[in-house]
Amino acid sequence: MKQNIYDNPIFHQSYINLREKGKGLNDVLEIPAFRSLLPDLHDKKVLDLGCGFGESCKWYVVNGAKCVVGVDISDKMITKAKQEFSDNRIEYVNQSIEDIELKPNNFDLVLSSLAFHYVVNFAKLVKRIYACVRPGGTLIFSQEHPVATAKKVSDGWVKDQNGKKVHWILDDYADEGIREQRWFIDGVIKYHRTLSTIMNTLIQTGFQIESVLEPTATVESEEKNESLKEERRRPPFLIVKAQKP
Rank of each mutant, 00 (worst) to 15 (best):
K58Y: 15
P215Q: 10
V188A: 05
D87V: 06
N8K: 09
I16Q: 03
I73A: 05
I189N: 00
M1C: 05
T218V: 09
N200W: 00
I185C: 10
V166E: 15
A217T: 06
L41N: 12
D7H: 06
K224A: 13
I100S: 02
I198G: 00
Y92H: 09
H167G: 08
I100P: 03
G163Y: 05
D108A: 10
L25M: 15
Q204Y: 15
I185A: 11
V133D: 06
D175Q: 15
C57Y: 06
K159W: 12
A242R: 03
I97G: 00
R193P: 07
K76G: 02
D43L: 05
I129A: 00
D175N: 14
F184V: 02
Y118V: 01
E223P: 02
A174I: 08
H167E: 11
F184C: 03
I189M: 00
F107W: 08
F85Y: 15
E55L: 08
K190N: 02
H42E: 14
S86C: 07
M1E: 07
K229V: 13
V133I: 14
L195D: 05
E220G: 09
K244Q: 05
P9G: 08
D75H: 03
K21T: 08
Y6F: 14
A242K: 05
K151Q: 09
R128G: 04
V126W: 01
N200E: 02
E220P: 04
I239S: 06
I10Y: 11
E91Y: 06
L114T: 09
P215K: 11
R134N: 05
I100H: 03
I178K: 13
I90D: 08
V158T: 10
E144M: 10
D171C: 10
A81R: 01
V62W: 09
Q3L: 00
I129R: 00
K103T: 03
E226W: 15
H167I: 07
K66T: 10
V219P: 03
V61K: 13
